[in-house]
Computed example of a mutant assay.
Amino acid sequence: MLDDTDRRILRQYQAAPGVASAELAERAGVTPSTLARRLAAMRAEGVLKGVRGVIHWPALGYELEVSLRVTLDKTAPRAFDEFIVSARGVPEVIEIQTFLGTVDVRLAVVARDLGHYQTLYREKLLTLPHIADIEALMHVALVKHDETVPL
């Protein structure tokens, strides 16, 4: 499992994922070769899943984000699978989560404005298969978004 050095590397990596390897090694108190070896091992073990670009949707003209809580008609044998395949085909659906409980699926949806969302909702989202109930929650403010974990 992870030792103190791995945790120190990960803390620094989370804090500044875009810094050069030499600076990251210095911040973590290890040599560049140790850093490279440890990061490679953590990637191989699945601890590090990858590096990604995070897009600020409003900068691209998507001003609205809506969470849809969906309850599916579970009398259909493949309701989950068919719903998820169809939802993946909607470009404005940026996240799909499944749950156990009264809500089966949550979709995160982006839209340019309210008119775009209304069209999207009527023409694409309500036509997804096996929907028994749907609740829309309009995002007002992002109070906290942190993908770091305490190490």
Rank of each mutant, 00 (worst) to 15 (best):
A15I: 05
L10H: 01
V85G: 01
V70C: 04
H145D: 15
V90S: 05
M1Q: 12
Q118T: 09
S33K: 08
H139P: 00
D113R: 10
M42V: 03
A41Y: 01
E82L: 08
L39G: 01
K124L: 06
G61L: 05
L2D: 15
H139D: 02
F83L: 02
Q118I: 06
Q12A: 14
T148N: 10
Y62K: 10
D113L: 03
A136D: 13
L107W: 08
A15D: 13
V19D: 09
F99Q: 12
A141E: 15
L137E: 14
T102E: 15
R43P: 02
L48R: 03
F83H: 12
S86G: 09
L100F: 12
V66Y: 06
E135L: 08
L100W: 07
R69W: 09
G61D: 07
Y117F: 15
T119N: 05
I84K: 13
F99M: 13
P77E: 15
R37A: 15
P32Q: 04
A25Q: 07
V70Y: 12
V110F: 04
L10C: 11
P129F: 07
K49H: 05
R27A: 05
R38K: 09
T5W: 04
Y121E: 07
R11T: 08
D81A: 15
V143P: 01
S86R: 15
A40L: 11
G46H: 06
T127M: 09
E123R: 15
D4R: 06
G61H: 08
L137G: 06
A40V: 00
L125E: 01
V85H: 11
V47W: 07
I94L: 08
V110H: 04
H130D: 05
P17E: 04
T71W: 14
A59L: 12
F80Q: 03
V66E: 09
R38D: 08
V103N: 08
P58S: 05
V70Q: 04
S67T: 06
T75V: 07
R112Q: 11
R106H: 01
L2C: 10
T148F: 03
